[in-house]
Nucleic acid binder design. Structure first.
Lengths: 256, 256
DNA sequence: CGGGCTCTTGATACGTGTCAATGTTGGTGG
DNA sequence: CCACCAACATTGACACGTATCAAGAGCCCG
């Protein structure tokens, strides 16, 4: 609920990760690119942006001339009401594209804040049309990415609207666990989700006190463990059962 | 909460509305098409589908080989939990595209039900790639359309998560009023939103009893009037004030 | 060492859900 | 034409989930 330290500045570093050696691309969850596509994207990428934990990457109401793909780190999208009530909309992890929502005017309808230090690939919004004309495949991918985000929002909406507090919490942690698991090499049981209980509350539409009691309940059942600023999922299937939800079985998905 | 009368059959009528004479296209909210684009879309459209009020147009878990654009009528998208709890995700009106969410596999993650008799333009999902390769502009439009739906879902999520019952109801009716207003010729004060209180409840994540009491409150303030199976908005700005929300000022938007 | 976040816990208040009953309307079949 | 039924809207009483208020403990960092 705080105002976030500082708005990230677009200090483009010269030390760019080359797309050919992008650490995400070999991962099993992402689709392969043709050499041509790779060349185009490398050229499409105009820089890299490093932001610190706690900084605001995009601000609601502002105009952004850029799109970003997360290279590393965690962030979240959110909106606020005038009196400060905050709703977290979704979480952003490596491989996720952000900024697409403000497509035409570039005026953002939501904010994005970094949960950890975050590295972003920077693209120019102006040049997006050339992507569609030169690489229809990539254009299709963009639509697919947007449609995927839509499906996730649908599920979140179902959760907040119709699931109980316990079910909601189970769903969220299960969702995040599978999301981050897909990015880590092996069965890494030590994955820590870097959020506070305030973040959970603002995602689930609950108060922080009730969120705390709900998380305690999950912890007492041995499904999760809460750390100082994070959560470890112990039994994802237990959460899955409570929530009545399972992750989509995705084939290799595209990313830009 | 009922199971809907019958699943709509794809009875393609020969009496097709030609895209050149599409009644939606001249409307001020939609962008103009070039002759080329119009020709392509006309060819892209494979038929028309008429569904009756109450019928299910798409079913969660099923595969659909088609995309649809609504030509006339009202419908809504929703998801359900196993025990029957239902969450309405969004409402669908003329000019809206449906089916994009299941992009790749075509497996639907939500259902769609008709609130009135509905006429749909039918497109083949298989041929969507040709749209991207032959008309990058239209591909861009598709992405834009998906991103727009995303923004709307963001706002709904904020609403369900953080607004009070009264604010939520005001937001929803205000939202629907502006949505349908944009489609009607003049200041038509007699626009009736064709939903029941159960629909409102399932959209807002409330019980039907509490929804009834909340709507009564709005009605007692003269902001709305509730009919048998519908709602008339009397003072949209009053609703807007309560909700703390205003519609986006959109320029002419694309549609397929 | 102090101050700020985060997590925790108990007491209490309030918003919303659930249950139950009634009235109304529109459609259907005898 | 009437009786009946189903769906919808309405209302009051009560229960329960969640919010709010308040206080304190642990921790990190300047």
């Amino acid at each position: 609920m705080d105002s976030g330290a500082a708005v990230a500045k677009l200090a483009e570093s010269n030390k760019r990760t080359k797309c050919e050696t992008c650490p995400l691309r070999p991962m099993s969850q992402f689709r392969d690119f043709s050499a041509q596509e790779l060349e185009f994207v490398t050229n499409f990428k105009t820089g890299e942006l490093n932001t610190e934990k706690g900084s605001t990457i995009l601000v609601e109401g502002s105009h952004s001339a850029h799109l970003f793909t997360v290279l590393s780190g965690w962030a979240f999208r959110y909106k606020t009401l005038e009196d400060g009530r905050r709703q977290i909309l979704n979480f952003v992890l490596p491989g996720d594209l952000i900024g697409l929502q403000g497509s035409v005017t570039g005026e953002m309808e939501h904010s994005i804040e970094a949960l950890t230090d975050v590295t972003l690939c920077v693209f120019e919004r102006d040049r997006i049309m050339s992507l569609f004309s030169k690489h229809p495949d990539l254009g299709y991918d963009l639509t697919w990415i947007a449609a995927r985000e839509e499906r996730i929002l649908d599920e979140h909406l179902l959760s907040v609207g119709r699931r109980s507090a316990l079910e909601r919490a189970a769903y969220l942690l299960c969702f995040l666990f599978y999301k981050v698991s897909a990015l880590s090499a092996k069965e890494d049981t030590k994955i820590t989700i870097p959020i506070t209980q305030q973040h959970v509350a603002d995602t689930l539409g609950l108060s922080i006190v009730h969120t705390n009691k709900t998380l305690k309940k999950l912890a007492s059942r041995g499904l999760i463990q809460w750390l100082d600023r994070g959560c470890i999922v112990k039994k994802a299937d237990g959460l899955s059962t409570i929530a009545g939800w399972e992750p989509e079985k995705e084939k290799r998905r595209p990313f830009i």
